[in-house]
Structures are given as structure tokens and as C-alpha cells.
Amino acid sequence: MLNIKNLHVAVGGEEIIKGLDLEVGSGELHAVMGPNGSGKSTLGYALAGRDGYEVTDGSVEFDGANLLDLEVEERATAGLFLALQYPVEIPGVNNAYFLRAALNAQRKAKGEEEVDSMGFLKTVREHLKALNMDEALLKRAVNEGFSGGEKKRNEIVQMAVLQPKLAILDETDSGLDIDALKLVAEGVNRLRDENRSFIVITHYQRLLEYLVPDRVHVLSDGRIAESGDRSLAHRLEREGYAFLDTAEA
């Protein structure tokens, strides 16, 4: 699904990702953990193609295509979804309108028929209900006036509607209470299947109690410093990131 080789990414001239290798197979969920400033969010933005995140070396193959050749929206249409750590507020743009426009833009780009309003609303209402979100949020401007938890859950609603092949969740668990965390995890688990992969960027092992990862990676100073199964997350929870220094020494 995703094959990253020797990725180097600079932001504002400063190299943040310094030779990262990562392979995520179809249907797999990989957790990426690491201390602040290790490059976790930079990895998400670079994969999504954000301006200012300059890939200076390396390659990224996504579902058979060279991801780095694609524009931001082409990556989305190819099936890549980034749930933002800080979802953006867009005043004046109706949440339902935006989401339907996004879905139809992707469908159109793929040569598929656009969805009608009724069919769209039926689907999105089901996802909202599953995430315990008020339907009224559909009529409000995108993320405007949403609580932190609502913004994060709104990202999961978008993901559920857009049905990506690879979803990167950038600290979607941060700022969530335990009930919201479970709802988000359930939302992700509902989407898990053999054709869809996830990269879950998180600081805490807590989320991984509900989202069982196939692999856990620890990012440090722009590289994968350690990889393992879910027991690695438990170790981090117990010992923190101090062992990285020992390992690197």
C-alpha cells in the first residue's frame, strides 16, 4: 500500500525527516510514536503534500503510484486521507455542503457519478450517529464553534464518508476524553478491512488499547529508531523515550 524509502523532508530550510523508511501493507494499522519534535506531524503533512514541506530526497510509492508526483487533491483522490491534529475552522462554509463537495470532487476525478443530496445525507447521518454527534453540526460552518472533541470526531466522519485507502490520523486522540476516544477508535475499527490501511500518530499508548496495531514505530530525530509489535507501545508507556538515547549510544 505505502512504501517510503529514505525520505528526507525539510521545513523552512531545516531538515526534519532525515532518512525515513516505512512500509505499510494493505489492511495494516501502524502506530507512529515519538517525542515532541521528532517529525511525526511533518511526516503526515509531507505525505499529504502540504506546501512548505519539501521532500529533498527519497521516494514514496502509494498504491503503485509515485505519491510525490501528485498534487494535494490528487493524493486525496488516490485514497490518502490526513486527519489533522488541529482541524481548520472554515467560517461560512456549511459542513454538509463541504463534505458533499469533497466527495463529489473525488468521485468526479475518478470518473464516477456524483452522489445526490438525499443519498449523501442518509450516509452522513449514519456516521454522525455512530460517533454520537449532533446532526445539527451538518448545518454549521466547518469546525466553527466545535469543541475540540467535536472537531476530532468530525475528522472521523469525513474519513468515513470519503472511504480512503490509507488514513493518517495525526494525534486524533489528543484532547479527547475517554468516551470520545472510544467513539473515535470504534469509528476507525469499523473502517478497518483488508484493503484499507492506517497510520496512527499518537503520543500515548492509551489509543492503542482500542486500536490494535500491527506494527509500532518510534520516530526520533526524523528517523524510525525502533519498530516492533504492540508491546513496544507498552514499553514506551512504562519507560518513556529515554531508552532511545541508550539505543542510539
Binding site: V72, E73, F98, L162
Partner: peptide, 13 residues
């Protein structure tokens, strides 16, 4: 930020 956000959901620039 908003422009990127919308594009990351599939809308053209």
C-alpha cells in the same frame, strides 16, 4: 491552512 485542508479532502485549488 484552510486552503490546504480543503484540497486534502479532494477539492482542486
Amino acid at each position: 491552512d484552510a486552503r490546504f485542508y480543503l484540497r486534502s479532502r479532494g477539492l482542486t485549488d
